[in-house]
Design a protein around this nucleic acid. Structure first.
Lengths: 241, 241
DNA sequence: TGTACATCAGTGAACGCGCGTTCACTGATGTAC
DNA sequence: TGTACATCAGTGAACGCGCGTTCACTGATGTAC
């Protein structure tokens, strides 16, 4: 956003280092987007964008990984907030889950580089044994989804283990985002909205259905005609607004 | 696999360059796995593993990207083959789709680095305008899924646009794999198999259900109690083996 | 009120590394005459 | 049958680049006396 020109920078007073830290984070995120990922991000470019020399960044972050990590932490908070907004704005817990899913997808499509940074990185980016601040932000985000699923269970819309269901729902929306922003070398859906609506409805209703099936049941093979006939009946019951 | 020791290499005769090309590809894939991705792959390491000097690789591949691309091409073929095996071995088209999905997930979990290379790369890796050999291999893989969906449509199990449905199903299994191999900083499912079974059943049955709903219908908000009651009836119809 | 000092944000120059890639070459082979 | 030659897989040394990071420094500020 704030394209600070490389004007001669006024030196911050002692104790005011946080201001520059803030500017560095903003510039880093912006350049992350331009570079398409952390591999393409350069400390030199961050320093230049802020209007400062490169070693100066080391007053605020011990190394490049920490800088990127700090950006990620901030993005996690934004993602969590946009989902929790959906939770707050819905009375019905199933509807809340659906809107949160949409918020999640929208966030991913609007911030593909950041999304990739949070959720599509190669390995477990652990620096040491215990969870980092970034891990905790991610965990908080996941927990809020588990809570929302739990409300559906309490309301009788879903059944079963909330954490497993949350993982399943997350995997589906993550698959949608991931597929759309990674542009694998085969055709992108002609109608992205139709694709998203279809997938999210199928997952939502399918989860409601499957969570009602006896838990450790053997997997169904073919779908019998009686089942298909009842599916047709069921479709007629759903309200169309 | 074939850990060729750095023994003094016998020079191939003119016209036999393909042998070394084959060895290079094998070594490259192995080192790709060890390095965790193409960013960590080094031409020097490939050459060393094969037992040859680095510039020698340039007799077989114009640059590093081409070498990685050639590995990808091969992996696409393996993935396609493992899914088509599932298609061939099933009479019932819905069951075929389910088994293909399982084969897909299994492939991804067993070859995480390669999977990431094929389906989780940053941008459209187009060198020029027209599709590369890798693009065509990916397209062939996707087409085979569309065909399988089409069989389900013909059999009356699914309804609607096969390509949209294929995208939707692919997104779901891709989400599962992607989530499991990327290890985002929140808890991995306690029981991976239960998670996978649940997700794939929900998607399969949900897709069968939603494909029966009037196509461009408004989205359902809350699930009415009548719908939930019928879901219970429906669950009783499904055969358990 | 003036002065010496500690603090610390930011500087300028450079190090050292590993990488992809290039270049002129070598030498064993199959082939044409 | 012998000889000159074209072919081409592989070599050895090096280039040049951009990167993260380090180091000794500078100089404006607030504060203690």
């Amino acid at each position: 956003m704030t394209t600070t020109p490389p004007s001669p920078r006024v030196r911050a007073n002692p104790g005011q280092g946080l201001l520059l830290r803030e500017e560095i984070l903003l510039a880093a995120e912006q350049l992350l987007i331009e570079a398409g990922g952390d591999a393409g991000l350069t400390l030199r470019s961050v320093a230049q964008r802020v209007g400062v020399t490169t070693p100066s960044l080391y007053r605020h972050f011990p190394d490049k990984a920490s800088l990127v990590g700090a950006v990620c932490l901030r993005v996690w908070d934004e993602l969590t907030e946009s989902m929790q907004r959906a939770f707050r704005q819905n009375q019905d817990p199933f509807q809340a889950l659906r809107d949160a899913g949409r918020a999640y997808v929208q966030f991913g499509l609007e911030h593909p580089v950041q999304y990739r940074l949070l959720l599509m990185r190669p390995g477990p980016q652990t620096t040491d044994g215990r969870p980092s601040a970034q891990d905790e932000a991610a965990l908080a985000c996941f927990r809020s989804v588990v809570d929302a699923v739990n409300h559906c269970v309490t309301a009788g819309v879903l059944r079963g283990d909330p954490e497993t269901i949350a993982h399943s729902l997350w995997a589906t929306v993550h698959g949608c985002v991931s597929m759309l922003i990674s542009m694998p070398p085969f055709p992108v859906p002609r109608d992205v909205d139709a694709f998203l609506d279809f997938t999210m409805r199928a997952t939502g209703l399918g989860t409601a259905l499957v969570s009602r099936l006896p838990a450790p049941t053997a997997t169904e093979s073919a779908l019998p005609s009686e089942f298909l006939a009842r599916l047709d009946d069921l479709a007629a019951v759903l309200p169309s607004e």
